[in-house]
Design a protein around this nucleic acid. Structure first.
Length: 413
RNA sequence: GUGAAUGUAGCUCAGUUGGCAGAGUACCAGGUUGUGGCCCUGGGGGCCAAGGGUUCAAGUCCCUUCAUUCACCCCA
């Protein structure tokens, strides 16, 4: 019988990979806590309508990438493709969203999208997500962005670019959208690629983001969102930009930064790296005023971001394995001498003293046991051979210095 | 969903015009009958992704399937 393999786009993580994730989580807890954010843990599975309503029916995520199925009670459920909708649902349900009283939350966990895997893209991937609910102020946007910057810096990831844009609000975006549609319609439609002709109907803003050279050229002369923002959005965005600059963050304005989820309003941002393959986005986020209400909650605004952990891992330095304090070697190979039992009991006492290490179950030659200790890169090797065992002693060898001494096992009680 | 590349030892990979299945590394043992790392010697390890076809003969050529990877699309 052949062994069962993991499913496409899902990954097992051992050793170094696993340590990288542990570090991302602990640094996030540290930095986010400094900003007053608290951790929430929410389910991975939600009712399908939460995402359909929250993310937008026309988006690729909802349209073709969700893991959706019917459970035994005939409910349509979906493995979350992103974090925000679930966090908001939880907060609304708990009565934890109050306009004017900001709540600050973060969460880690797996997300699921049914896509073709490639470098930096998995069907199960992990995000670090942060949400600041209840404040419409530009200062809230800025704190969220700064927190993200601090976090990435603490992880030691450099060479990233921060891109910012404003997508306008429910007042001004329709006007811009109309202007954009009018512009593209005034052109020879043949010049746009096939995808963009489709995007014209579903979401014309996304044409701005097209990478086909022909489309790029047309986009150059297209109306810019900045010129169509209403006074409120213009003021908001300039307040964000000025405060971000004063905080010393270098950013680039990207008027073509559109995001894949429909709920974004006003400020949007993306952090990208050129060093991780074709999928360059490492983190992305923005403001989503109106979403809470749309999901059945109070009229509370919000800002947040999500960070792709697999992509961050591609940029992080190797995480060295921690070095164990001891290896407890048994070189007494006599039948049933009891030396292994003695080793287990001594190992237990060492751990009660705070030391880390492992014990031998299979006695062997001095050479093989010391090789093992060297392999494990331990600081000290505790040796119980026939002579030690009969005398109630243990030999402790310093694996760096090479020196050793003999101690009474009873002295560890 | 589309395209391309790749599947040989635990891992990284060689394998010529079709002719006995290989290396490095890892693992185990030995090189001082109680002392690791470096070095030397030896050893265990393989349905050559799966199935079919061509051939005296297939890891190698042909077909099908599966898997992986990269890219498109889109996004974290």
């Amino acid at each position: 019988m052949s062994a069962i393999q993991k499913i496409k786009g899902f990954a097992d993580m051992f050793g170094e990979d696993s340590r990288a994730f542990t570090r991302m989580e602990s640094v996030a807890r540290d930095i986010f806590t400094r900003y007053g954010f608290g951790e929430v843990r929410i389910p991975v599975l939600e009712r399908t309508e939460l995402f359909a309503k929250g993310i937008g029916e026309d988006t690729d995520v909802v349209g073709k990438e969700m893991y959706t199925f019917t459970d035994r009670g005939d409910r349509s459920l979906t493995l979350r493709p992103e974090a925000t909708a679930g966090v908001l649902r939880a907060c609304i349900e708990a009565g934890a969203v109050e306009p004017g009283k900001p709540s600050r939350l973060f969460a880690f966990g797996p997300m699921f999208r049914y896509e073709r895997p490639q470098k930096g893209r998995m069907r199960q991937f992990h995000q670090i997500d942060a949400e600041l609910l209840g404040s419409p102020e530009p200062q809230a946007d800025v704190e969220v962005i700064l927190m993200l910057r601090d976090y990435l810096e603490e992880l030691g990831i450099g060479d990233l670019s921060f891109e910012l844009n404003s997508l306008g609000c429910r007042e001004c975006r329709p006007h811009y959208r109309a202007a954009l549609t009018a512009y593209f319609e005034s052109l020879d439609e043949e010049k746009l690629c096939e995808d963009c002709r489709r995007r014209m109907k579903t979401n014309p803003l996304r044409v701005l983001d097209c990478k086909v050279p022909g489309c790029k050229a047309m986009v150059e002369k297209a109306p810019a969102i900045a010129d169509h923002l209403c006074a409120g959005c213009r003021d908001h965005f300039s307040a964000v930009l000025s405060l971000v600059s004063r905080a010393g963050l270098a950013y680039t304005l990207n008027p073509r930064l559109v995001r894949g989820l429909d709920y974004y309003q006003r400020t949007t941002f993306e952090v990208t790296s050129g060093a991780i393959g074709a999928q360059t986005a490492v983190a992305g986020g923005g403001r989503y005023d109106g979403l809470v209400q749309q999901l059945g909650g109070p009229d509370a605004p919000g800002v947040g971001f999500a960070c792709g952990m697999e992509r961050l891992a591609l940029l992080m330095e190797k995480q060295e394995a921690p070095r164990p304090d001891f290896f407890l070697a048994v070189t007494d190979t006599r039948e049933k001498s009891g030396a292994v039992d003695a080793a287990i009991l001594l190992g237990h006492k060492l751990r009660l003293r705070g030391l880390s290490g492992e014990c031998d179950y299979e006695p062997g030659s001095m050479k093989s046991r010391l090789r093992r200790a060297g392999k494990l890169n331990v600081k000290k090797c505790y040796i119980i051979g026939p002579e030690e065992f009969d005398a109630g002693k243990v030999t402790v060898k310093d694996m760096e210095e090479g020196g050793q001494l003999s101690l009474d096992i009873a002295a560890f009680d």
